[in-house]
Design a protein around this nucleic acid. Structure first.
Lengths: 343, 343
DNA sequence: TTGTATGCGTTATCAG
DNA sequence: CTGATAACGCATACAA
């Protein structure tokens, strides 16, 4: 096996008796270089197996064309679809994507933000860790004009770009749908997280929808969850079914929770949707596959990823006070399937 | 908002009246620097908000501490778990991870391999695109001593590291399990891909298991799939159930296919597992959630990711002819659940 | 123990 | 249209 050192523009320059700067320009179709030279350079570059060193270019020009993604985990369907959307948009503009998982830990988020900064990413897309309260570790980006976009789990108080859905409205629509199906006693699961605005918003939509339809809000129909897992969902639902006056509907702010509800109901001989209608959230693949399949709220993960990436690529150097706070709302829809279709 | 330029070691040097090289060494605890200086340097570095520029370091030292991942998509559970494993191992050794999706396209794989090389990654972990036949675009890594690890979908003919399971044995075990449950006519779905060795191996395990137990191999019980989707699975299963002599068992080389089989059977009033036992592959989350839950073959995605990352991190500068061809086999197990438990 | 000088590969500026 | 040169930030060989 041969061991060639990386081919550089100097190697090409030498071979063609040209200056390195000419090579550099020719390779980027600089207008001041003759077509003949451009062609010749590109030809030999290819022959010699030249591949530009992005580190050098990044160091020199302070432009890395790299988007940093900082999310809790890549294994959640919503987040892996988000990545997919970012990656596709990035790819189109010849950007790379660098991914870090905070695993919902504040300390890891801090470390990884630093690492992204260290890599001089062109921009950062972040969905906050559950643990995160303080967001000062993102200041290094803002302070250095590195565009920062929060997605989905966004901080309340940070002056930067956000790509989010209207969680309040989504929660409202989900609940209203159940009411329209004839549900009278609608339960809700609500994860508690440090800042928690996202789930609080969905809950607010839920309570408002009830109130608007003259349905009293019962606190024992609202269960707080420490974690968003299947097991927690089962536990919460059993608790609901054990009530002397159990619910006839549930708005679960996640599809996995909705699945756990449907299956717990089935195990207890409760008919879904007739005795217990369920609507989830996210439109995860599983919601479509489980039987009965789960009504849900669409959450356009890929689109959100695309939007976030484009915010960075269309380089918003203008993360200035004036136009900050920019918020992109994307639409959500009620996707009615078997788990809630009563009429 | 202030606009500070990035703080460099020169800024620290100036402030402390030291040479930049001293700062550089102090920050990495070089033995020739006094403890007092080290402490002082680190202290002020922190105060000034210094973050090392990995581009400069990478350019200078030709070490980027970055692992490139090149996979078909991040949204498949197996692959997102693989990423997770890689990322966790990388994180431990202070490596970053850069991810590219080939979307199973050969051309994209070629482009992205080049992009990874361009980023001078320290190593590459790849699971091949479905379309890929030729693997010469990976030579740039081998030729430059950049460790290359193929995972799961590996080429037959490439002399490098692999992290794979024993697909033959897994297919054999899955089929044997069904035979032991009393199945006499076991069907199989087999995706066709360009190189396809992975699925061919599973199929070989299947046919060998049948042969060994004196069960004739019937070609109409073996269905080729163009794509590994739920819909294709449904189609194939309907085709099987329409046979005048339908199967009483199925080995599906993926959990999504197994789910489609179970649900198609249920829709047609065929009892699972009594009339039709099913075993899948991968142990995807869904296999555990669907009812009846699906027996499956475990596929240790996170472990494989970890193993692959470690191969790179323990820097195999020795990607020399002698020790290449190194193959890591990892264990798989039959996970018996409801979809196949008859006895 | 610390300082000086140089180069990594590219691009931008200025000159020709 | 092309060439020479400096600079990006860091790490190392060598000098002190």
């Amino acid at each position: 096996m041969e061991e060639h050192r990386h081919v550089t523009i100097y190697d090409i320059a030498q071979k063609l008796n040209l200056a390195a700067s000419t090579i550099s320009r020719a390779l980027k179709d600089h207008h001041s270089i003759s077509d003949k030279t451009i062609k010749k350079v590109k030809q030999t570059a290819k022959e010699m197996g030249f591949v530009p060193n992005t580190l050098a270019a990044g160091l020199r020009g302070n432009v890395t064309k790299t988007i940093g993604i900082l999310i809790p985990t890549v294994t959640q369907p919503f987040l892996s679809s988000l990545i997919s959307g970012i990656e596709i948009a990035a790819q189109k503009s010849d950007y790379s994507v660098i991914i870090m998982q905070s695993h919902d830990s504040y300390q890891m988020e801090v470390d990884m933000a630093k690492s992204l900064y260290s890599n001089r990413v062109s921009g950062v897309i972040c969905s906050l860790a559950m643990e995160t309260k303080d967001t000062s570790h993102f200041k290094q980006f803002s302070n250095n004009n590195i565009p920062l976009v929060f997605v989905d789990r966004v901080p309340k108080d940070y002056d930067t770009f956000r790509v989010v859905i209207n969680n309040y409205l989504a929660g409202y629509k989900a609940t209203k749908h159940l009411i329209e199906q004839g549900c009278k006693r609608i339960a809700h699961l609500t994860p508690v997280s440090e800042f928690g605005s996202l789930y609080n918003e969905r809950k607010r939509g839920y309570t408002d929808a009830l109130a608007e339809h003259g349905i009293p809000i019962e606190n024992n129909l609202i269960i707080s969850l420490k974690k968003i897992t299947y097991e927690e969902g089962v536990k919460a639902c059993n608790q609901l079914f054990d009530l002397k006056n159990p619910p006839d509907g549930l708005f679960a702010p996640g599809d996995l929770l909705a699945v756990s509800a449907v299956q717990t109901a089935k195990k207890r001989g409760i008919k879904v949707p007739d005795q217990f209608a369920v609507i989830g959230f996210n439109n995860d693949p599983i919601s479509e596959i489980i039987e009965p399949n789960i009504s849900t709220i669409t959450h356009p993960a890929e689109k959100m990823g695309k939007a976030a990436a484009e915010l960075i690529i269309k380089n918003l150097k203008s993360v200035k006070e004036e136009d900050a706070k920019e918020i992109t709302f994307l639409n959500t829809q009620v996707l009615v399937r078997e788990s809630s279709r009563k009429i």
